[in-house]
Design a protein around this nucleic acid. Structure first.
Lengths: 261, 261
DNA sequence: CGCACGGAATATGTCGGAGTAAATAGGGAG
DNA sequence: CTCCCTATTTACTCCGACATATTCCGTGCG
């Protein structure tokens, strides 16, 4: 045991159920996404970096394998481990998205995600309207009633919101669409912190969701797509104003322990 | 060194520039995607499996970290390493897509990808028409001329095809869209093997591409989206007929293993 | 008889070191 | 000045040991 009681912990982002190499990957990932390590930069050697992080080479290497699997870095003998250009990153990977939103998210990237969401989600609603069965509709209806009971200010309400969107995705009968939208939705939900930070949601989101639901029930694909389009547009508007508020505010206190999920 | 010359190589998919743990990950990944290991299955212990694969526990563990990073498996002490349910897989990860197409690709999944492509690419063309600059148009024009010179039967021609689509993506000014479409496009190109296997392409793809190009030049977003929509539809038609040809051929495994996720 | 608590077994997680292979940089020969 | 060869640096692989977390099961109590 090389760690004595006086030495500080290797990383503060180390919780239960979170392995050491996962914590290292999280730390390096957020550092890369935040720009601390720019594309083309060469990381210190294995031995040096592992020693600096107070972990063994095994843990460090396993973390590097994770980052390599997500396209963030590449290692070659003699050349070292270097950060890959941004277009090689798997930006749609859930973990990478989480890392991107761990710090101050790039506004341009948020715009990109919302544009993608505005493309994908209406199309998903269109498919759902054409392919849903009774069970799908039942799941949506239950999620809607749950949303009405709890509001979006509670955890249960937000869970119901996710359930509603997930029910739509399940009704599309399209795995690729499902995975993609789930990732984007989760990422977009990271921005919820900004919405809540700036001011409470002034708008009641229930009618928008009901419009989507009604269109899917009646099997009207065009109407479902349009209703979903409106829903996404409103969400974008909320987030945009929240971000602008944030940018006009003084620097946020760094001690906001924002542990994801 | 425990490997002697008489023993068979741990994996035949081991080439230069390909690390050992990468090869292990590739092997396990394809096995999972092909259904050899179904969701919920528990892999043998680290020591046993590593020994079976004729590799050290370190290499095996690093491969598992890669699979974990892509959402295919999850490991917990005492519980072992088990394959996660299919909806946890990062199906849009380039490597996972490659593994999915390494064996006999699932027709339903191919349909999902084409549906997603049909959603995303026209929208990308619409953005490109609105945001492209001179350099973007220049890149597209050069790719088109290269496509005309070499046909799609040559590697250079297919590279030009990719360049054309990449130029459109770059013109969207949307990183998320760029990453996604690049992955999907690469995956769809895996199906090229089926097209070529069945019969030579009877259709000349140049006019379709020129229509997209002209619309983007004139800044007509709606026309660009429609032209791209036609292009994707035709590609889908080609692939569908090629796959049907394959399926009507000798019994490629009559047992449709439909593992309900 | 059923449930809650606690200890033991077991598989993953972490560690440190040794040796191998590969790629770049530098020096030497043509 | 070019080309090839050598040397060095770095990641890659292997090994064996210990630590830790979780599950399982036996025990005791209600």
């Amino acid at each position: 045991m090389k760690l004595d009681e006086t030495s500080k912990k290797p990383d503060e982002t180390r919780g239960p159920g979170r392995r050491l190499h996962g914590a290292i990957a999280h730390r390096l990932g957020t550092d890369i996404l935040s720009g601390k390590y720019a594309p083309g930069d060469v990381l210190s050697g294995e031995v040096a970096f592992a020693e600096e992080l107070k972990v063994s080479r095994s843990a460090y290497r396993e973390a590097i394998q994770v980052l390599t699997a997500k396209g963030l870095v590449a290692s070659r003998p003699k050349a070292g481990t270097r950060v890959l250009p941004r277009d090689r990153w798997n930006l749609l990977d859930p973990d990478v998205l989480g890392w991107a939103f761990a710090g101050e998210p790039d506004i341009e990237f948020v715009r990109s995600l919302f544009e993608l969401r505005a493309i994908v989600e209406p199309a998903a609603a269109r498919f759902a309207a054409a392919r849903r069965d009774k069970d799908d509709l039942k799941a949506m209806k239950e999620a809607l009633t749950a949303m009405r009971r709890h509001t979006l200010t509670t955890d249960a309400g937000r869970a119901a919101d996710r359930d509603f969107h997930n029910a739509i995705l399940a009704a599309t009968r399209n795995d690729a669409l499902k995975v993609l939208s789930a990732s984007i939705g989760a990422a977009v939900n990271w921005t919820t912190q900004f919405k809540q930070r700036s001011r409470a949601l002034p708008r009641n989101p229930i009618p928008d969701h009901v419009r989507v639901y009604d269109a899917i029930v009646s099997g009207d694909g065009a109407a479902a797509a349009e209703a979903m389009n409106v829903l996404v547009d409103l969400a974008l508007e909320d987030t945009r104003s929240a971000i602008e508020d944030r940018d006009s505010l003084p620097p946020v206190g760094a001690s906001d322990a924002l542990t994801g999920s």
